[in-house]
Design a protein around this nucleic acid. Structure first.
Lengths: 371, 371
DNA sequence: TAACATCACGAAAGCGCTTACTGGTAAGCG
DNA sequence: CGCTTACCAGTAAGCGCTTTCGTGATGTTA
């Protein structure tokens, strides 16, 4: 049972295929009766347009590709899942945005030893690509960007990408450090850093270092994790074993490591925030459900994805866009792990359940032409 | 700058387009020199095949669509994210499986008031569809399945779907109840149920009810949530306000509700598991990082996605498949919220960090012909 | 050496659609 | 009344690829 084509519709409606096409695409220059007749037949036959044929003829796929990285080589390991929370949110945002403009979303994941063939193939199947968080090498990025509209997401300044969409790590970190040092008066800071390879981790750490000096606090120790909760655990146990006094606050460069740290501290019955305060970065979903609730910096992951797709769309549509960088704002989220009083119940309840109006989509903090 | 086509390659290599096509697709009947010459030219020009043209000519898109639901109407609300954890894992598994067979993955989300147009459109752009967790209505499912290969994931027996892939809720629940009643000897069980509309929730609840009776335990109360952590909070506060004595164990029909419950209990300084034990279902990522670690039942979400795609592929390829149902096994995950001793550190560490060999992909517990 | 199989490649059809271009009819105008 | 214009709808080209069929060259057999 072959799927019906416009030829079938044309025959059944007694018109030409051109007319069918015009009716289906709501083009002008068709009488209302003809249009309705065609649409009725289409409905009756359960017609669905063939996307490949349409794309070939129209000259555009109306599809946008999202390229993400799956760092772990082992699909069954927890660390893979963990590191992907951010990516999942980005994908959701991208899908939402794509659907709004009538585009489809094609997904490809780059695995450690898989090479970037999957990304390459997407060039011939999409109108543009969103490459998330260094999913491919610089060279691959340059290759892709040379022949396809590409936006780099959460990636500072890759070669060739027309567009960069990222968050304002500096401002988010600044607010957090200020809260800890100025508001709480903490003077001794321990830092759980992220992987060297991560631009986010680097930007956050450099800001902590710079601001701590400025504000009169001291970095009393740094440890390096890989952004996974497991690495947070490892770091916390290392600190415990060292016998050195705990810093007054442990700033973790993302939430997942903070979660690992909190778990170790709870097991060792070290009171948070009384003995040591702990903070994260990202505001992943569960952070609010930890005890104590994790003070962190919210990163608009969905908005990033949505913004990437919509700017890509404009780049494809619009005549041509200047090289641009979009920086989305972050937001300090104060819960109780920093030493602030726990929120009263109704607040927590409100936060989690209230169908309050959506916060306006994160606006752009700055759009700067890149040199 | 137009993208190079096989015509460009043909001209530059001095052969016909047929030969180019044969070289690119590694077809037989080509001399090695010719093949290499064509491939060299393709490489030089940075050729990427046009997927739409290929699909149109070849008669298959080599794409599989995944249709998921986004229940929340408000993209910015936490509940949306929460309910999607499972879906994210499914998508990852599906993508992995698709990539392995050289397929692309197209993603569409059905939003509350968006209708199922997005799913309909996918029929013309894919070779098959995976519909997750009642993302579309029964009628829509029937419509889709009537004209496209469709597999229903985590959805009992929709009209028309050729394939159903789901987990063994009954066995997972059975193990959990047995652990609580037989091993721990708990006799008074409170149940935090999921939404009526969820087949998973229903299957789990019915199993609890049946087994409790069989094993001599009593259901001392049931409350209904909507699978979100926020609803878990609400339920826990309701229980607290009621003044009634706590059941010895609160079985939550998924992890997210358990997380909400745990948060309230922690805030009210009710000791878990000493005063009340708490369990979940799903084994989402963070469950192991809670204090106490959440005892739950692991649901192989990624495997579900992978299995759905690979069976769909076989259904498309193979001559024709009988109606089938695939049931993936669940696994009881004992942590400390049930009253078991906390795992020694090295175990937790191992669980989270060790690059141990992947557990064998979950095998099928049963493949049964559906009537 | 004739007859025939095999091999390597080219010519051309066609996948289902969009979109110029074209034409035919009715209305509007001087 | 002859002409232009507007409105509808049909004809046909072509998007970039795969694949069938055909053909000349080469190798094989009696």
């Amino acid at each position: 049972m072959r799927a019906p084509t416009i030829y079938d519709l044309a025959e059944k409606a007694g018109v030409s295929i051109a007319t069918v096409s015009r009716a289906l695409n709501a083009k002008a220059g068709l009488s209302a009766e003809t249009r309705d007749r065609v649409l009725a037949v289409a409905d009756e036959l359960g017609y669905v347009p063939n996307g490949t044929a349409r794309g070939l003829s129209y000259g555009a796929t109306e599809t946008i590709g999202v390229v993400v990285a799956t760092r772990s080589t082992n699909a069954a390991l927890a660390e893979e899942h963990e590191s992907l929370l951010f990516v999942d949110a980005v994908i959701r945002g991208a899908e939402r945005s794509a659907q709004r403009i009538g585009y489809a979303l094609l997904l490809a994941s780059i695995r450690p030893r898989s090479g970037w063939e999957a990304a390459k193939r997407m060039v011939g199947r999409t109108d543009g690509l969103v490459v998330v968080d260094r999913a491919v090498s610089e060279e691959a990025m340059a290759w892709l960007a040379a022949r396809h509209p590409v936006v780099a997401l959460a990636w500072d300044s890759p070669q060739g990408a027309e567009l960069v969409v990222r968050i304002d790590n500096v401002e988010g970190t600044r607010q957090l450090v200020e809260h800890l040092v100025v508001h709480h008066g903490y003077r001794e800071i321990g830092v759980v850093r992220g992987p060297e390879s991560s631009p986010d981790a680097t930007a956050r750490w450099q800001t902590v270092e710079r601001l701590a000096a400025t504000l009169g606090a001291r970095i009393v120790g740094t440890w390096t994790g890989d952004f996974s909760a497991a690495s947070g655990e490892r770091v916390a146990r290392t600190i415990g074993r060292s016998g050195a006094p705990l810093p007054r606050v442990l700033m973790c460069m993302n939430d997942q490591m903070a979660i690992g740290v909190l778990k170790v501290l709870a097991a060792q019955e070290i009171a948070v925030p009384q003995e040591v305060a702990v903070t994260g970065f990202d505001d992943i979903i569960v952070s609010r459900y930890l005890s104590p609730g994790l003070t962190t910096v919210r990163q608009p992951a969905e908005e990033l994805g949505a913004m990437a797709v919509s700017s890509l769309f404009e780049a494809v549509r619009g005549t041509h866009l200047a090289l641009r960088e979009m920086v989305l704002p972050t937001e300090l989220v104060v819960r109780s792990s920093c030493g602030c009083a726990p929120q009263p119940w109704y607040v927590a309840s409100h936060e989690a359940t209230d169908p309050a109006p959506s916060p306006a989509p994160a606006g752009m903090v700055g759009i700067t032409a890149m040199a």
